[in-house]
Design a binder for these strands. Structure first.
Lengths: 189, 189
DNA sequence: CGTCTATTTGAATGTACTCAAAAGCGGTGG
DNA sequence: CCACCGCTTTTGAGTACATTCAAATAGACG
């Protein structure tokens, strides 16, 4: 738990034990059972979550009342609605556990405090944010570039075992196609 | 020039004059004439650019040889291909000036140096990166949510005067529709 | 003024959607 | 342990949105 975070951090910056302990003391361990919400649409995202184990999805509800998945989050990922978290505005999205999920969470207030008290964290979160940005851009470009069939094949190639942990209609939603059409694609290959 | 950057920075962090001068000394003023490239596909993005004046587009070339615009950049924006810049990998995109464009540029090496010598810059770039991430996400979500007609209307509403500075086929490309279909949309409203 | 580039028009086509219904699957209670 | 219920996936028909391709028209610039 502690070690998982420490190991994660060590991939990006060097943080001595006392700084790490200090940071860790600002975090809180939380558990969410299947279907529970980490964040709900219409509320403000007060926390950023580091996933220790489990699986979550982020989705919004469109004007027809359909839930559209925009991201999945797994072990060793930070998740939140950045727009809501940073600007402390009402969120347009919901984050929900798809499995029993254990996280470390930190509030906006405490994170801001952490930045002041442990300057090295600025670097860590700069790097994490850069990684997120790159991931987000790669996703966008792939979606623009690829046909829906290629998107599907790309996904099962990129994270094969992950597809089995998630119902197909959520995969379809993530790929931005209807479940019916995904079913078609699967049949034809 | 100097003042533009200073003013921009002051929106996010407080930086004393000596730190600012130090940072500024690592920057270089560059000018690109219309159609010139700030970055070319297949090369590594060595620099990050702060646009002082002018207009650029970022695009990639798809398998049919069509150029697909993924972003425009204007005054007071930092542009680069983050994926290529951060990981110093070959870039998949090209950045081109659409007008005579004046920028401040900083190399990866110098920016890394700057982070070590002026720790406050970590915070500045963390914040800038967060802003970019949020902008990128807003764009993605809007594109997922809205129909192509809504995307067009949204664009001309968001940045009306900007549409006139850019040929229509680039707008179409940015909206991820064909120029023919955009022409249709415009006719019908 | 002529040439090159950008935009519009139109017809044929394809990709993906909607809606309705059937089939499959998994968990729960009797 | 089986039967049923609810949820998920598949199937199919009809349709809409957006594309391709070719050609005509308009616009910009030297």
């Amino acid at each position: 738990m502690k070690e998982k975070l420490q190991h994660y951090i060590s991939r990006y910056i060097q943080l001595d034990d006392s700084d790490f302990e200090h940071f860790y003391s600002l975090l809180q361990v939380d558990q969410f059972s299947k279907k529970e919400f980490l964040l709900e649409e219409g509320k403000i995202s007060r926390n950023q979550f580091f996933i220790l184990e489990g699986l979550v999805r982020t989705f919004y509800t469109d004007h027809n009342g359909n839930e559209k998945v925009i991201q999945f989050g797994i072990e060793n990922w930070w998740v939140t609605d950045m727009d809501s978290f940073i600007n402390q505005q009402v969120s347009m999205v919901t984050i929900q556990a798809l499995e029993k999920t254990k996280v470390l969470s930190i509030s906006k207030t405490k994170l801001d405090q952490a930045f002041l008290e442990i300057p090295k964290l600025e670097r860590l979160f700069r790097i994490i944010t850069e990684k997120s940005l790159v991931a987000q851009q790669r996703k966008s470009h792939f979606f623009m570039k690829a046909s829906s069939k290629e998107r599907y094949l790309g996904l099962i190639k990129a994270i094969p075992n992950f597809v089995q942990r998630v119902p197909q209609y959520m995969i379809a939603s993530y790929l931005d196609i209807t479940p019916e059409y995904l079913s078609d694609l699967r049949k034809k290959h």
